[in-house]
Design a protein around this nucleic acid. Structure first.
Length: 860
RNA sequence: GCCGAAAUGGCGGAAUUGGUAGACGCACCGGACUCAAAAUCCGGCGAGGCUCAAACCUCGUAAGGGUUCGACUCCCUUUUUCGGCACCA
């Protein structure tokens, strides 16, 4: 009777389903004396392609941990669902005419069946999909909560909009505008990233990915919904500190948030009517202010036209025109050659009182800081390049420390000509008020002066921008917002949710840059139930990221109709203990979800500040040829084929054996054959293939001491490898292999040894383990059996191999009893023939002895 | 350009409070079983030297240097690969 993985896997998958083996009990039925463990996968987007081999990699890892924790007695939460709204389904719909809803259901069925075929221990009762009405009802509800909140700067948290202080004496209209200007979700006419091929806007976070796919992205002014994520920049940054996340993901998020500390400084400019205007600039180096030889405004800066004089007006206008026509991409790409024009105006340096020219240049971004900078060409690379191009003067104001008089003179000479540009910290020179001060002191002295003279202040800036939250799509959550004819708008009442997508109608693009929903008159035109007025619905939809911001909460209470998640359940299960997914979500999902969660926290709906305690990124699986799998290369491995040919257990085992989880590694068909061979060997260890009976080598009485010791070591190794959180299951599997190899070498082994081994194997290869477990006469499921423990005494070695070195070179090895004392080790080393040969006629300088390891004899 | 990670046999990868480099698997080679093949089982397998053989010797963890009795492991320099950012003042 051979190892028939197809039958075995089908049999046990059915068993698990029928018996609801992996169902997580309701809160009241849990054993509260045991800790909880929430292990989560990044839920998949169910595309038409079906699962690829990359999906099972992370899913197998979480499944191993989930099964292990259950056997350890933890209360385990291990759910799965679908990130079901999204662009590619909609594009498929446009191409084929199949409604996105139907298409989504088809794809989900396929995914579900594929995931089940791999034997993952999900609690399928908790399955959720973001495009289900009873799910997106709560996404909309949360949007309303965000919309109806403002950020209290004093308490540093979001609060309900009702608690907002409205200044006295405002008219109704002013009140309305004031409140809208404070909401955490707001409509604004802002320059957005428009992608013509997709026919929608994109958030800043989404742009790089789409450009990589070959799509173009242009800046365009559009009235769009935004979420005020920038209010949370500091908290998103600081709270990263305590998370058990990969360092690089934290770095990527820190970088994206991009905090910089500096100062804003006010300069006076004479405008083209001869009046004085104030302009604020931002700098991280206020100590270099004496070296500012010009001032630059971004082309979009409000003051540009006001200060440009008649003489320079044509030149400036044409420059502005060119700049607006460039896309962001062009503007950065063409930036190798800096450009700019003089406005004719001069600004006064508030400290040195010197007059410096004001220019317009597109290397200054309107969207960062104040949209204006002071040009310090001696100490900023970009300013240096610009100054050299336009022959602007350069004044050195920072001297590196530790230079000789001669070097100083050379430094000043080279800096003045633009040959050198020193951007580091040093000592201020040519800077009246701060001469001789080191950079940090110089900075604080300048800031003090600015504050005292009301000429500026210390300022913090972030690269992070508000989250552009609307898309011109059909297949997403509609905004529960209605627009009145007079241009005002308001939110729908919470009890009117969900606001459903129209069914059975056109979802094709409108062609006007508006959402397809705009073309569905029946849906768009409606009556406000409160005022009875004719209104139009908001036609944009939310981005795909909305639903994934909180799905991990819905898993805890998927059927609740009264709330998105019962507070008690949230308190018990959150935060997620282990979250595994791809690195592509380092910004995007992982920053949006943290932000969303913090709002829910501020408003009192969740009880923790961060949703994911430990994050782990699985690496990519490459094709057999060592490059990324792609259809065009024809190197795609289909998991269905693998399961059919080798079985789910072999696939799971192989994906874990390939290397550490986070590594990028190539697929290997020969490699999976090896793991299949291992399982067949394991099978034959238990089952006599000729008779189908148990192997005669299995006996009831005890093993020899070597097998017992090896078993204990194997238990320790496998347990440690799963528990330490490094996700290096390859070494655990290699120990399982060693154990099997050893059992092949002995005449007999005990039932206990093989049973414990099967328990160790079960999280990795659950089907064969269940089968062998029950064939050994035990009752299923193996999931309910406690994880084996080891005896620390039996893990210790009896004999160790000592290494004898002479001058650090290995000259001999010798087996000796564990814990033999140093003196005996030395004697043994000195008595060794080969060692003697190498120290003959030489003088022993010293002997270094490390217990149970080595003896090194140093000779001269 | 800046930030981060990595580089070990023919291949995937083990080994770090500094102490036997190459566990385990793949590929390959040899043997057993077989009429034969597959499957299976047993053994070998970093490079080179010496040898009938064993023993033994030299080199070897991207490259170069350093610290140390001893370095894949720590420090410095360089190269390459991957990921992120890219006029953020």
């Amino acid at each position: 009777m051979k190892y028939n993985f197809t039958d075995i896997e089908r049999k046990w998958q059915e068993y698990w389903e029928v018996n609801q083996t992996f169902r997580t009990p309701d809160l009241d039925d849990l054993d509260k004396s045991m800790p909880k463990y929430y292990v989560l996968d990044m839920f998949p987007y169910p595309s038409g392609e079906g699962l690829h081999v990359g999906h099972p990699e992370g899913y197998t890892a979480t499944d191993i941990v989930a099964r292990f924790k259950r056997m350890k007695g933890f209360n385990v939460m291990h759910p799965i669902g679908w990130d079901a709204f999204g662009l590619s389904t909609e594009q498929y719909a446009i191409k084929t005419g199949v409604h996105p809803k139907i298409r989504t259901e088809e794809c989900i069925s396929k995914f579900r069946q594929q995931l089940k075929s791999l034997g993952f221990s999900y609690d399928w009762q908790r399955e959720v999909g973001t495009s289900n009405e009873d799910y997106y009802k709560w996404t909309q509800w949360m949007f309303l909560k965000i919309y109806n909140s403002f950020y209290d700067e004093k308490e540093n948290k979001a609060k309900p909009i009702e608690e907002l202080d409205i200044p006295n004496g405002f008219s109704e209209k002013e009140k309305y505008e004031f409140v809208n200007s404070k909401r955490l979700a707001y409509l604004a006419d802002v320059p957005v990233n428009w992608c013509p091929e997709l026919g929608t806007v994109l958030s800043n976070e989404e742009v790089p990915e789409q450009i990589e796919k070959g799509f173009s992205v242009i800046k365009r002014n559009m009235r769009q919904w935004n979420l005020r994520i920038t209010k949370y920049a500091d908290r998103l940054l600081n709270d990263l500190e305590d998370l058990d996340w990969p360092k690089n993901v934290k770095d990527i998020q820190r970088n994206w948030i991009g905090k910089s500390e500096g100062a804003t400084v006010v300069f006076e400019i004479k405008d083209n009517k001869g009046e004085f205007r104030k302009v604020e600039i931002y700098t991280t180096r206020p100590d270099t202010i004496y070296g500012a030889t010009y001032l630059i405004l971004a082309p979009e800066h409000k003051l540009v036209r006001e200060i440009t004089d008649v003489e320079n007006s044509d030149k400036v206008e044409s420059y502005l025109e060119k700049a607006t026509r460039k896309s962001d991409l062009e503007r950065t790409e063409l930036s190798k050659e800096k450009s700019g024009v003089f406005t004719g105006a001069y600004a006064v340096n508030p400290l040195s009182r010197t007059e410096i020219p004001v220019l317009v240049a597109d290397y200054v971004l309107a969207s960062y800081g104040t949209g204006a900078i002071m040009g310090v060409p001696g100490h900023d690379e970009r300013d240096s390049e610009f100054a050299r191009k336009l022959s602007l003067p350069i004044i050195p104001v920072v001297l590196p420390e530790g230079l000789s008089e001669e070097q100083k003179a050379e430094f000043i000479e080279k800096t003045s000509t633009g040959e050198e540009c020193f951007t580091g910290e040093g000592i201020s020179i040519n800077s009246e008020m701060i001469n001789g001060l080191k950079t940090p002191e110089a900075i604080s002295k300048v800031i003090q002066w600015l504050v005292k003279n009301e000429n500026g202040k210390e300022t913090v800036n972030f690269k992070l921008r508000d989250w552009l939250f609307s898309r011109q799509r059909f297949w997403g959550e509609p905004f529960p917002i209605i627009h009145f004819e007079d241009g005002t708008f308001k939110a729908l009442a919470e009890d009117s949710l969900p606001l459903k997508l129209p069914e059975g109608v056109s979802y094709k693009p409108s062609g006007t840059g508006e959402s397809p929903l705009a073309g569905i008159a029946d849906w768009v035109n409606t009556i406000d139930p409160v005022t009875g007025l004719e209104v139009k619905r908001e036609t944009n939809t939310m981005p795909q990221w909305a639903g994934s911001c909180w799905y991990f909460l819905r898993f805890l209470d998927p059927k609740n109709e009264k709330t998105f998640c019962d507070k008690k359940l949230e308190e018990f299960w959150m935060p997620v203990d282990l979250y595994i997914g791809g690195q592509e979500h380092s910004v995007l999902h992982l920053i949006y979800a943290r932000f969303w969660y913090k709002i829910l926290y501020d408003l009192g709906y969740v009880s923790h500040t961060e949703p994911f305690t430990k994050l782990f990124n699985q690496g990519m699986i490459l094709g057999e040829d060592g490059v990324k799998m792609s259809k065009s290369r024809g190197n795609v491995i289909n998991p269905d084929d693998v399961v059919r040919e080798f079985g789910a257990d072999s696939m799971r085992l192989f994906e874990m054996f390939m290397g550490p989880l986070e590594a990028t590694k190539p697929w290997s068909t020969k490699g999976i054959e090896g793991l299949n061979r291992f399982l067949r060997r394991t099978w034959r260890l238990v089952i006599d293939e000729d008779t189908g009976e148990l192997n005669k080598k299995i006996v009831e009485d005890h093993d020899d001491v070597l097998i017992i010791k090896l078993l204990n070591k194997t238990i320790k190794k496998v347990t440690d490898d799963i528990e330490d959180g490094d996700m290096k299951f390859n070494t655990a599997i290699s120990y399982l292999m060693i154990f099997v190899n050893e059992l092949y070498k002995v005449e007999k082994f005990s039932r206990e040894a093989i049973e414990k081994f099967i328990l160790l194997l079960s999280p990795f290869a659950p089907h064969i383990s269940e089968e062998l477990w029950s064939r050994l006469g035990n009752s299923p499921s193996i999931q309910n059996v406690p994880w084996p423990s080891y005896d620390p005494e039996l893990v210790k070695e009896d004999v160790v191999t000592l290494v004898f070195q002479v001058n650090g070179k290995i000259r001999s090895k010798q087996e000796m009893e564990f814990d033999t004392d140093e003196k005996a080790l030395e004697d043994a080393a000195l008595d060794n023939e080969n060692v003697k040969k190498h120290i003959l006629g030489k003088q022993i300088v010293k002997i270094i002895t490390v217990k149970n390891k080595m003896v090194n004899i140093v000779v001269k």
